[in-house]
Simulated scan of single mutants.
Amino acid sequence: MEITIEKFSKLLDNEYISIEGFREHSKASEKYIDITFIQKDGYRWIGSIPYFYRRTGLFIETEDDLVKYLNEIYPYFNEAGIEKFKASEKKRWDKEMSGKKTTKGFFEELLDLEWKSVKYDLPNNPNWARRIQDIKEFGYTLATDTRRKVKGKDETDTHILLVPLPKGGVTGYEVMSSAFKAKVTSVMKSINVYEVSKANKHGLLPDHKFPEIRWDKETRSENSDEMPEKEIKEKFQLIDNQRNQQKREVCRKCFQTGKRGILYGINFFYEGNENWDNNIAKVGKEAEKGCIGCGWYDIQKWRESLNKFLEDNN
C-alpha cells in the first residue's frame, strides 16, 4: 500500500509539522517523508524522516500510522535535544569507536546533521557505501537522497543525512570468523551449490539461506566455530560472490514487490508459489517461513524437489 500526500495531509493535525513530499530509495528498500519540524520557539529542523527502514525494523504502511509516528518523534527535534544528541554521540565515538578510524571520519562529517554530498563533503573513499552501511548497522538513522542538488554547483549527487533519533542498537551482519568460513566450506565439501561444481572453490562464500534484507535486530546471532554440522547445513549454502550478489538483488526485489525469485528461469516452487504469503511477517525470524519453497532460499532442496516432481510426472 502506498501512502499518498493527499490522504496523509488530511489526517495530519499538527500545525508544527510541515511536509514537502514522499521519496523512495529503492535500492536500499527505504521510504522517506521530506519534512520540517517547527518548534514553538521558532526553531526548525528540515530534513527527511525514514518511515520504511528495515535497519530499525520500521515498516509504516498507512497514513494513520505515519501521522502517529511523526507526532511521537516530534519532541526529539528541538534545539536543546539536537545539541544533546550531537554532544553525546561525539563522546560515544571518541570513547567507543576510536578504533574505527575510517568510519569515524564519515560519522564526524555527518554529525552536524546537514546533508552531505558523497562526492564533495564526505571523505574520499571508493567504498563509501560500506562506511554508510556500517553507521546504519551501529544503530543510527540515516536518510539518503540520490538526486539532491550540490550546494554552489550546477549538478546533483547522492547526499546522506544523519537524523537525530535515538541510537537503535547494533544490528549488522552475523559474525563469521575465518575458521568458521573454512568449516562451512569443509562441511559443504567445497561444492558450489548453484553449479554443483568444485571449480573455483577458493571463491566460494557461506551464504545465509535466510536473506539479510528480512532480518531484524533479533535475528542476528554469533556463528560459533563449534556450530554443529547439522545446524550449518540448515543455515548456509555455498555459492560464489557473483551468485551471492545476484541472490541479494532477487531477495531485495521480493521484499519490495512480494514476488518471489525464479531460479534458472524455471517457475517452480516446492512450497507455495511466486507470491509472498501475506499472512507471513515481512521481517524477523517468522519471515523465514515465507522463503521456504523458493529456489534461491535452498538451491539444493529446490533441485532435489524439482527432480522428484519430474520423476513422479514422467
Rank of each mutant, 00 (worst) to 15 (best):
I3C: 01
T4C: 02
T4L: 09
S9N: 11
Y16L: 12
S18G: 03
I19K: 02
K27T: 05
A28K: 14
S29Q: 09
S29C: 08
E30A: 11
K31P: 00
D34Y: 10
I35H: 03
K40L: 10
D41H: 02
G42M: 05
R44S: 05
W45I: 02
I49Q: 00
Y51D: 07
R55V: 01
T56K: 13
V67E: 01
Y69N: 04
E72L: 13
P75Y: 12
Y76S: 06
F77V: 04
N78A: 02
E79L: 11
G81H: 02
F85S: 01
K90A: 14
K91R: 14
W93N: 04
W93G: 02
E96C: 04
M97L: 09
K100V: 02
K104I: 00
G105C: 07
F106P: 00
W115A: 03
V118H: 09
K119E: 11
D121N: 13
P123K: 06
P123V: 03
N124G: 07
N125W: 12
P126A: 10
N127A: 09
W128S: 10
I132E: 09
I135W: 06
I135L: 14
F138L: 11
A143G: 11
T144G: 01
T146C: 01
V150N: 06
T156S: 12
H159V: 06
I160W: 15
V163E: 10
L165P: 00
V170Q: 08
G172W: 12
Y173H: 12
A179S: 15
T185E: 13
S190R: 14
V193T: 14
E195F: 14
N200R: 15
H202V: 10
L204D: 10
P206I: 04
P206K: 11
K209H: 06
P211F: 09
K217N: 13
N223R: 09
S224I: 06
E226N: 14
P228V: 08
E229M: 02
K230F: 07
E231F: 05
K233A: 01
Q237V: 00
I239E: 05
N241H: 09
Q246E: 13
C251N: 15
C251H: 15
R252P: 00
K253N: 09
F255D: 13
Q256G: 03
G258S: 04
G258M: 01
G261H: 07
G261K: 06
G261E: 04
Y264M: 08
I266S: 08
I266A: 05
G272N: 12
G272L: 05
I280R: 07
K289R: 10
C291E: 12
C294F: 08
C294S: 15
W296G: 07
Y297H: 15
W302D: 09
W302H: 07
N307K: 14
L310C: 10
D312S: 08
N313F: 08
N314Y: 12
